[in-house]
Design a protein around this nucleic acid. Structure first.
Lengths: 143, 143
DNA sequence: TCCTAAATATGACTAATATCATGTTTTATA
DNA sequence: TATAAAACATGATATTAGTCATATTTAGGA
């Protein structure tokens, strides 16, 4: 469904969303431990996210990663697309190029609506939206 | 979502379902071409399916692969599980081990019902079911 | 019974993904 | 302005998924 990398990206961003702010930046190594992702690896992913304006960062002493207000509005869909590539989510289940509603593959009807609704949700849910859920104790971000 | 291998497996089985019978066995190489999967690779997958009774085969001259009536009742879920391993379909989106309905991860609610309905469909759909769809021209199995 | 055609088994190779390591640049502070 | 702490960039390694090749076994037909 999702690559490890994009799962890591989501976990890191959600962690930042809950624990960081402009005044409280967090080091890569202090993100890696609680979300249980290798330090150097999450650093690399954070840099990619930073380059595309999905997380904010500051170099030097007192620096680190954090989310600004704009970052928090990032859609889950955009994070996944950045890390996993454009069409991992939307391509045919059997990877048939010609598959569409006019020329459906044998599994098309079986998965089309569930997939569409999944993608729809990813497109209408922002980091911010999930954050409030976590804050209110409706969901958790453990290992 | 699904690994290439299990997509290949599904395509091969569906191809056999439509084109083969006990009297009309098909060679691995004559399956590989129409479904656009490397010959040696699909052979390997077919052997795995054969070992687990999801396709039938016969060695020697005039041999090949085919589906018997029992094979056709195989559920899509079983094929995917065999190739991709038990919990690829059912595990948490973020790969959190502790994630369940009592302890949902932040994305749990977002994906739970769509995933459940997807798995449900895979569990209640057999190869046979899809075959009739293909035969009646409601869906297609091209490249 | 010998030859050939097929699946089967096994292992080697390749490519993609994931992980690690090292050096460079930026920024704050003394 | 020197030093240290951090992100950033790049490339190397390891692991896994996917692909290929070769040898073995089985079955049918001459």
């Amino acid at each position: 469904m999702l690559s490890n990398s994009s799962k890591y990206a989501l976990k890191a961003v959600l962690y930042l969303a809950v624990h960081s702010s402009m005044e409280k930046k967090i080091l890569a190594k202090d993100i890696s431990e609680p979300i249980n992702v290798p330090r150097a690896y999450i650093a690399k992913i954070l840099q990619e996210l930073s380059r595309h304006n999905m997380v904010s960062s500051m170099r030097g002493p007192g620096g680190g990663f954090y989310l600004n207000e704009e970052n928090k509005k990032t859609l889950l869909f955009d994070i996944i697309n950045l890390i996993d590539g454009d069409n991992r989510l939307t391509s045919c289940v059997l990877s048939l190029h010609k598959c569409d509603n006019e020329n459906p593959c044998p599994m098309h009807h079986l998965v089309d609506d569930t997939k569409a609704s999944f993608v729809k949700k990813l497109k209408e849910t922002s980091v911010e939206d999930l954050t409030s859920e976590i804050r209110s104790g409706k969901s958790f971000l453990p290992i």
